[in-house]
Design a protein around this nucleic acid. Sequence first.
DNA 1: TATTGTATACTTGTCATACAAGTTAAAAAT
DNA 2: ATTTTTAACTTGTATGACAAGTATACAATA
Lengths: 235, 235
Amino acid sequence: MKIERKKVSMQVMDHLKTMIKEKKLQPGDKMPSESQLTEMFGVSRTPVREALSVLEASGLIASKQGGGSVIQAASLSNVMEEIQFDFVDPHDILTLLETRLIIETGAAQLAAERRTSGDLAIMRKTFEKVQESYIANEIGHQEDIAFHKAIATAAHNPLLLKTMENMSDLYAKSVKFSLVKNIGQLGKREQVLDEHERIFMAIEQGDAKQAQQLMHLHLTNAKQKFETELKKISS
Amino acid sequence: MKIERKKVSMQVMDHLKTMIKEKKLQPGDKMPSESQLTEMFGVSRTPVREALSVLEASGLIASKQGGGSVIQAASLSNVMEEIQFDFVDPHDILTLLETRLIIETGAAQLAAERRTSGDLAIMRKTFEKVQESYIANEIGHQEDIAFHKAIATAAHNPLLLKTMENMSDLYAKSVKFSLVKNIGQLGKREQVLDEHERIFMAIEQGDAKQAQQLMHLHLTNAKQKFETELKKISS
DNA sequence: TATTGTATACTTGTCATACAAGTTAAAAAT
DNA sequence: ATTTTTAACTTGTATGACAAGTATACAATA
């Protein structure tokens, strides 16, 4: 067992975190100035600044030059940071698709129950974009994601939306870097288009159960397409 | 429209991020030393260190005093950063529970299909802990979460597990700081215990559909309990 | 009086230097 | 060949200085 000295900057960070947690510092309040912090912790300005940098990058405080630092209200969808990178081996993509399946199936269900007319308008628009990219014979990855995102938005659950965005974002990047670059063009694209349309209609009609089933089918198909393609390569 | 100068430290951070993304720096490699970075970016050491601090806090690099900084392998379940805080107003807890419901129903389904004998052993152990805390008339929040986590583990989908951990962790913290502190003791606790047992049995028998339904019921009940409690308070 | 400049103190952002603490690797001693 | 020592390097912290931006009280003006 090796004991390693904790960095002072990290200790300061922990202190500040707990101070915020214990509501000694509330959202909207101004943080003590850096010089005040150096005095109250008895450390130099360097680790204090590094601690503040991390807190700022986490979105917990906002520092303005000359102004000071203020505690930010951390909304639920705000505390989930974005997934940042894309080292993914092809095998992990299956895991990703599986997770997307679960999340988006739930999202479709909620969307059918809660969609507003505005939601439907956006969904319709994104769906048409997918159609256009199909006609133009383009890959249309971006458009596809936009459609799925519109559905998640219509679910009116910010946490779910954020999670879904992380997943599909990571998925898009993974596919881009993966061996299976042409997955977007696999299978009959008319079928994909048809699946989209039926999902849209189910949500429009408020049929939660069917929306859920159709989304499930849609992503199951995508997953299977990817699996067969993966086998081809590895053989 | 307000134009604001970008901090040098942030620019450095972006550069380093893209360098890693473009695979110029791969996991396991050593980062350039701080003095090298100051030279190559033409800035002082202060912003360089602040950028590195953020990257380290994000888990992307690990710095050891005297040793240097190495790029960390970002595994799929690792790129999802932990949710760090718990300023959540009671209303958001419903959102949280809803998201948990979606994710954990999926997890229960997969767990029924994939659980190993080892998974079952752990699940049984955590279930017994919940029982014990019930007998001892304790709240048993931690035990409850451990049981749910065991299920998510049995799903053998690291990404889903990580997401679920984030959610239930945030949930536990939220409840702790919320107005509704006694939610753990709401309703008939025998019922909760019974639900747990039935979920466990379904997974043990490999009945995916039933496991899914039971988990759905279980979390729906939890959500409803919370909703009624919320009404009591606000009235 | 109300508004506009202005001076001033304060705060964050960056730079430079110095040293302590820890690691690494080559050189030296055994 | 193995161990010890030394030297060079790297990160962590301290200190002082200045630039850049902000906030506020105060004076000048309409």
